[in-house]
């Protein structure tokens, strides 16, 4: 808790233009046959400020990964836009290349994201070669990136192939490959999901250290609330393509207001909740987003009649709570919580 507070101070100048932001971002995938199109990301405003780590939390299939891919320009938004330092992202080959030098992606699966035929050296130097060709100081920069990622001495790993490394080492190589370009933002999609607990701590510590040393901003996509708690300054909870609650991580995770966030937290053993909330109803399907509040069919607050008591049950079923705006304020997209 205190550590988090200190970090908030470190990320104080947040009133400036966000480094990376999504503005009314929609990404829909065309359905096959009679299935409607899947609205994987359905209106998201999200800001990442300089030196800030934002966690994007949500269950599988809620559109986290699609949002991350859209932020990198790997997925074209169907509506809305991605902005980098206030400038909208342009999707030509050349502007994308320039953009991808400054914003880097770390994928979930470190084993798959390294070409098995490339050595560690080649994998890390790849970004450099794409953007600068072969440079004289290539070797030094690769070595620096590797050692900064915790692979020391770097020379020992140069000629290793990914299959000779452990999962944690591979993820470090991937991170080194992103760091070697000295990006301003890292978008990490489940960076530690495939790693065991002992390695997770190291990788997370690494991200925090890089933030402190290099002033890196990061968007960490995760389904793990504990991870969000440990690493993030702000958390955004995503449900069915939309951010339903956003704010400083202490507020969102310690005193959650949205019923969905509460349900997510209640199943953690250390949450101290009296009884876990098991969400009923059908699992969310982005091809059939419910009318009204998109969570209402599974909402325990509505189900238990609390919403009725507060007099918002009708609005829950018929009125969309709307898209949360960007910025750093705590917000929640829930009629009941806002009532």
């Amino acid at each position: 808790m205190t550590a988090n507070a200190e970090r908030m101070d470190a990320a104080a100048p947040a009133a400036l233009t966000p480094v990376l932001s999504a503005e009314g971002l929609h990404v829909a995938f065309k359905g096959r046959g009679r299935r409607g199109s899947a609205r994987a990301v359905d209106g998201v405003d999200l800001d990442v400020h300089a030196g800030e780590i934002v966690a994007l939390v949500g269950e599988s299939g809620c559109g986290k990964t699609t949002l991350a891919r859209a932020l990198l320009g790997l997925e074209r938004p169907t509506a809305g836009r991605v902005a980098f330092e206030g400038e909208p992202l342009r999707y030509g080959m050349r502007p994308l290349k320039t953009y991808r030098r400054r914003v880097q992606l770390v994928l979930q699966d470190p084993s798959g994201s390294l070409n098995p035929r490339h050595t560690v050296y080649d994998a890390v130097a790849e970004g450099l070669r794409i953007h600068e060709g072969h440079t004289a100081d290539e070797r030094d920069r690769v070595a620096a990136a590797l050692s900064r990622s915790g692979l020391r001495p770097p020379e020992r790993f140069f000629l290793s192939y990914p299959h000779e490394l452990s999962g944690g080492q591979r993820q470090r190589v991937v991170i080194a490959g992103a760091l070697v370009l000295e990006p301003e933002v890292i978008v990490a999609d489940e960076p530690v999901a495939s790693l065991d607990a002992s390695v997770r701590g190291e990788i997370l510590g690494l991200l925090l250290r890089l933030r402190d040393e290099l002033g890196l901003s990061a968007l960490v996509v995760t389904h793990d609330l504990g991870l969000a708690w440990n690493i993030a300054d702000r958390a955004a909870v995503m449900y069915l393509g939309r951010v339903v609650e956003v704010g400083p991580v202490e507020e969102v995770l310690a005193s959650p207001r949205h019923p969905y966030t509460r349900a997510l937290l209640s199943v953690l053993p250390e949450s101290g909740a009296d009884s876990p909330v098991i969400l009923s109803g059908e699992p969310p399907d982005p091809t059939r987003v419910p009318a009204g509040c998109r969570f209402h069919a599974r909402c325990q607050v509505l189900g238990s009649g609390q919403a009725d008591a507060a007099g918002v049950a009708g609005r829950c079923r018929s009125e969309d709570p709307g898209v949360l705006s960007g910025g750093t304020a705590t917000q929640v997209a829930c009629h009941w919580a806002n009532a």
């Binding site: 994308l96 880097q104 992606l105 994928l107 994201s113 390294l114 070409n115 035929r117």
Partner: peptide
């Protein structure tokens, strides 16, 4: 279909780079 192709795109690779450095060797 492999993730390392996605990583290459995210690093800023162009078609030529993906074809030469990733597809061809494999």
């Amino acid at each position: 279909a492999r993730p390392y192709i996605e990583r290459a795109w995210a690093l800023g690779a162009g078609h030529a780079h993906v074809m030469r450095r990733h597809v061809l060797p494999n």
